[in-house]
Amino acid sequence: MAQAHSNRPISPHLQIWRWGPAMLVSILHRVTGNGLAFAGLALLLWWVGAIAGGEQSYQTFISFVWTGAGSPLAALTAILAKLVLVGLTWAFFQHMASGLRHLVLDIGVGYELHTNARWSVLTLVFSVLATALFWAFVLMPR
């Protein structure tokens, strides 16, 4: 792009400004959204394709993503996949909360500094709590 080679003044960027919650929530919205899009949807497709493929292909999916049974590779990926699953759950709740925040901002309210910071922080609190509650419920003995 033309401006990349010009000597004209450029606007201050991330390293100049003092970080606030709104900035963190903004970049997290992009990071979680792209994480869900690439890792989350890929995993969802693998899951549904494995179910459609029959019991054996579903067992392969489960061993690679959860139990780690059957091969050393599966044992390794099952550990990573658990981290990915918890990460994706958090990413979903964070993206949903900051997305709801965006819908509110879209109608033109919530821009006062303290209000904006408070709701930004609340999306972070919500996503961590919701992730913990979700996994506590799923892993609860039934």
């Binding site: 179910i51 019991e55 579903y58 979903f92 949903m96 997305g99 709801l100 799923v138």
Partner: peptide, 26 residues
């Protein structure tokens, strides 16, 4: 986004409420 707000919670709540995660159940 509004569509996802209905569909994804439906999916994760349904999954969480399944009695187990055996192939036949899912």
């Amino acid at each position: 986004a509004v569509g996802n707000l209905i569909l994804i919670p439906y999916l994760i709540v349904s999954l969480a409420l399944l009695p187990d995660f055996e192939w036949a159940t899912v």
